[in-house]
């Protein structure tokens, strides 16, 4: 849960946010490439969820398991929702949506890591 893949998820989230910020400043709507990046981010959260639950089943350590699974299962819905919600928007508001989600996702990874560590 604290390995290279989680770090990669954080980096991709921040990269998507930075990309969306550039589009927002340029006044551009979400193009197909940024949409693809949103879906990549969602896919990474699905992998994180599968990996995290597998890791959880492999340990007897005490931590908030229900919370952990809740975070892992609901997190991928946010970038998917943002993809759907920004896709039909032809203004720069769509890019702003992706920016917000790109910033929220790394925070979620950190929160998931905290739950895993028992904080």
């Amino acid at each position: 849960m604290t390995g290279a893949f989680s770090t990669a998820t954080i980096i991709v989230g921040l990269a998507v946010a930075a990309w969306a910020a550039v589009y927002l400043i340029m006044g551009r709507s979400v193009g197909r490439y940024l949409q693809g990046a949103e879906l990549l981010l969602a896919a990474m959260f699905v992998v994180l969820a599968i990996g995290g639950i597998a890791q959880m089943l492999g340990t007897d350590r005490e931590f908030a398991r229900a919370e952990f699974v809740g975070y892992l299962l609901l997190s991928p819905l946010i970038p998917v929702g943002a993809w759907w919600w920004s896709k039909n928007d032809e203004t720069r508001a769509g890019s702003a949506v992706v920016l917000v989600v790109g910033l929220v996702m790394p925070v979620l990874v950190v929160r998931i890591q905290q739950v895993w560590a028992g904080v």
Partner: peptide
């Protein structure tokens, strides 16, 4: 529309977070 789209997303994230 416009800024409202961003507002909806922030509300949606809080709705998911607060509900779970």
């Amino acid at each position: 529309q416009g800024f409202g789209r961003v507002l909806v997303v922030i509300y949606a994230i809080f709705a998911i977070g607060a509900t779970s």
